[in-house]
Simulated assay, not measured.
Amino acid sequence: MNYQFNAKDILITQLGEEGVAFNSVTNEYFSLNETSFKILKGIENNLSVDAICEQLIKEYDIAKSDCEKQVNTTIQLFLSKKLITKE
């Protein structure tokens, strides 16, 4: 499944290795750790979940199954906060 960044309502800013997302509709800020920021940027850049996991696996040397589980958990959170949508 592919996801799309909600560019209409969401602004993201990098702060060092981490980031912040702002929902202009709800006026909510979301603090993003380094990994969740990379996942959100990957979705913004139209990368598939597999491509995002490949990048994270190379960078963090983690098991593919662990990466997929964590990325999917983060994506569910992003969906619930309307930072992204399903395509």
Score class of each variant (00 low, 15 high):
Met1Gly: 14
Met1Glu: 12
Asn2Met: 14
Phe5Lys: 00
Phe5Trp: 12
Asn6Trp: 09
Ala7Lys: 06
Ala7Trp: 08
Ile10Leu: 04
Ile10Pro: 01
Leu11Ser: 14
Ile12Leu: 10
Ile12Thr: 14
Thr13Phe: 06
Gln14Ser: 15
Gln14Asp: 09
Gly16Ala: 09
Glu17Tyr: 10
Gly19Cys: 13
Gly19Val: 07
Gly19Asn: 12
Gly19His: 09
Ala21Met: 06
Ala21Tyr: 11
Phe22Gln: 07
Asn23Asp: 15
Val25Ser: 12
Thr26Arg: 12
Asn27His: 10
Asn27Arg: 08
Glu34Ala: 10
Ser36Thr: 15
Phe37Asp: 00
Lys38Ser: 03
Ile39Cys: 01
Lys41Ile: 08
Gly42Arg: 09
Gly42Asp: 01
Gly42Trp: 00
Ile43Val: 13
Ile43Gly: 00
Ile43His: 00
Asn45Tyr: 02
Leu47Asp: 02
Leu47Val: 02
Asp50Met: 07
Ala51Pro: 05
Glu54Cys: 11
Gln55Met: 07
Leu56Glu: 00
Ile57Thr: 09
Lys58Arg: 12
Lys58Ser: 13
Lys58Asn: 11
Glu59Arg: 09
Tyr60Cys: 08
Ile62Cys: 06
Ala63Leu: 14
Ala63Phe: 10
Lys64Cys: 12
Cys67Tyr: 11
Cys67Ile: 05
Lys69Phe: 15
Val71Trp: 05
Asn72Phe: 14
Asn72His: 07
Asn72Pro: 06
Phe78Gly: 00
Phe78Met: 04
Leu79Met: 11
Lys81Val: 13
Lys81Pro: 01
Lys81Glu: 15
Lys82Val: 08
Ile84Ala: 02
Ile84Asp: 01
Ile84Ser: 00
Thr85Val: 09
Lys86Phe: 07
